[in-house]
Design a protein around this nucleic acid. Sequence first.
DNA 1: TTAATATAACACCAAAAGGTTATATATGAA
DNA 2: TTCATATATAACCTTTTGGTGTTATATTAA
Lengths: 104, 104
Amino acid sequence: MGAAKHDVFQAIADPTRREMLRLLAVKNLPISEITAHFPISRTAVVKHLHILSEAQLVQGTKVGREKIYQLHPDPLVEVKDWLSFYEQFWSNKLALLKYQMEKD
Amino acid sequence: MGAAKHDVFQAIADPTRREMLRLLAVKNLPISEITAHFPISRTAVVKHLHILSEAQLVQGTKVGREKIYQLHPDPLVEVKDWLSFYEQFWSNKLALLKYQMEKD
DNA sequence: TTAATATAACACCAAAAGGTTATATATGAA
DNA sequence: TTCATATATAACCTTTTGGTGTTATATTAA
């Protein structure tokens, strides 16, 4: 199991973790360099990386004595798909109007 | 539970709250009817609704002795905008490949 | 071989999240 | 007025979250 203890929605709920994803989008980084970007301890950074890892959003690979983290954005498609349902409510004002009138 | 500001990312992190949004997308509903859809107490439902309310995702209006909740999906645009940055990584395999080769 | 570095592995803590019951208040109906 | 219904709120419980610090282990450089 361990599969879906942390889903992608929960993983991106934290602003620190979102910032980590942004960093890794630019460049693969070891834990120490990631830590340098935040005002929290390395231990705390590792915990955030674990949560992102469980959600399959990042992947860490040991290279020498460093562990290099890499962005793995595929699970974000789930969020995109979820969001797409609600796009009708802001992308089509006419449909929205019709819908609002009919629903009560 | 969340006196401080609840942003939209945190609000949609919980599956129960996402299901509530889905219900309200179909029809405006009073608290009692929303509660009927979940295996949790009405009090717990109200707490979730408060969090959604703080994130401006729903709005409650008192009508008689009922409080009718309505979907207010605009804040989801923030999530959509955030996501759009990552779309390059899955919508253009060629760019992704190029990017992966250059970044380390 | 030894010293320095990077991470792993703990134990510990405070606060927040998600839930419960119990009680109170407001409204509509009889 | 009285009663049933809908919501509000307070108090409390348990688990998770997000953070800390310390210590141990593995790897690299000198």
